[in-house]
């Protein structure tokens, strides 16, 4: 009855074994994303892979492996253990630089082989449409009048938005009260609902609300205005000494071989020059095109780490 076909099943299974043995032979690069599926790093990884595949830049195949948890430390630990391996990549975002400094993990961004920064993200200071604040000067004035009373919202503790709040406080000579939410969506809804006074947001987190007239951008953290947002002044031109870039890069395990580094950097460069990357990913996510390879990228990471260390130290959050 049920199992008379058992023998036949066995033969079919045997045939299938041969098929999947064939599958397993192709050279694959494991692309580790230490954050969950659907997040910023995950989207970047999947589009990078798509840019490489669609434009047939290499024969090697990629598997995107999300290893979320521990503020990026689980995925990082996994990649650190792949020391010396050539077929592993990992995404890196600024959070992975600040987390170990805040005592929330042991693996530092400098522990990996830096391959290249492949995109840049910035922060915007945003208020809702009904806010009395029309400019950064208004915010600074209000913060000065009531020290520590102005409510600033952002995502996560001791990460980008928290540090930007500190930098703004330093540049304006004021003190503000920072509250952490989980993710840009929650920050925006609390801003629109009037539960916080000002908020930090990446361009892609607030551009919909700004275009729809629900929110206003006061300033951007870059040196100059962004090409995509020509009406938004930079803090620098307004006379506030603060510049902040969020890094989005690709790293390899420690001790990656020279040939593999060269091969990877070359492939990343080609991938970021494709239309797929420039048009579908960067424009879609309102990111800035930035490619900084190898040694220069290592320097960027080190500078960022220094800046975070200084900021977290002043905020009393440094726990190395």
């Amino acid at each position: 009855m049920y199992f008379k076909k058992g023998f036949r099943t066995g033969l079919i299974s045997l045939a299938m074994v041969l098929v999947f043995a064939g599958f397993a032979c192709a050279e694959t690069i494991e692309f580790v994303v230490p954050w969950s599926a659907g997040g910023g790093s995950d989207t970047m990884a999947r589009f990078l892979v798509k840019s490489i595949r669609d434009n047939k830049l290499t024969d090697a195949d990629f598997v995107v492996a999300n290893k979320p948890g521990g503020n990026g430390q689980i995925g990082s630990a996994y990649v650190v253990n792949k020391k010396g391996r050539d077929n592993v990549w990992m995404t890196l975002s600024s959070g992975q630089i600040s987390v170990p400094l805040a005592g929330l993990g042991k693996i530092k961004a400098t522990d990996f082989t830096a391959l290249a920064q492949i995109a840049g993200d910035v922060n915007l200071l945003v208020v809702s449409k009904d806010s009395p604040f029309k400019s950064v000067a208004d915010v600074a004035k209000a913060a000065k009048a009531n020290p520590g009373k102005l409510n600033v919202g952002g995502s996560a503790t001791a990460a980008e938005d928290h540090i930007c709040t500190y930098l703004l406080g330093k540049a304006t000579g004021t003190k503000m009260n920072y509250t952490a939410f989980s993710g840009g969506g929650e920050v925006m809804s609390n801003l629109l609902g009037g539960h916080i006074d000002v908020a930090w947001a990446n361009p892609n987190e607030c551009i919909g609300q700004v275009k729809g007239g629900l929110a206003r951008m006061l300033a951007v953290t870059t040196e100059d205005r962004l090409a995509l947002l020509p009406d938004v002044p930079s803090f620098k031109e307004l006379g506030y000494n603060m510049v902040f870039w969020q890094v989005r890069g690709v790293h390899g395990p420690p001790n990656m071989s020279k040939e593999s580094i060269a091969w990877s950097v070359d492939l990343l460069k080609k991938a970021t020059e494709t239309d797929t990357w420039q048009k579908e990913y960067l424009t879609g996510k309102v990111l800035t095109s930035r490619f900084i390879p190898g040694a220069d990228y290592t320097k960027v990471i080190k500078e960022n780490e220094e800046m975070f260390r200084e900021a977290l130290g002043s905020m009393g959050l440094l726990k190395e």
Binding site: F3, G6, F7, T9, G10, L14, V17, F20
Partner: peptide
């Protein structure tokens, strides 16, 4: 079950998962 049925079922299930 007889051994070959057991084995082929196991093979089938693990392959299906893989």
């Amino acid at each position: 079950y007889r051994w070959y049925i057991t084995l082929s079922m196991a093979l089938f299930i693990s392959l299906a998962f893989y």
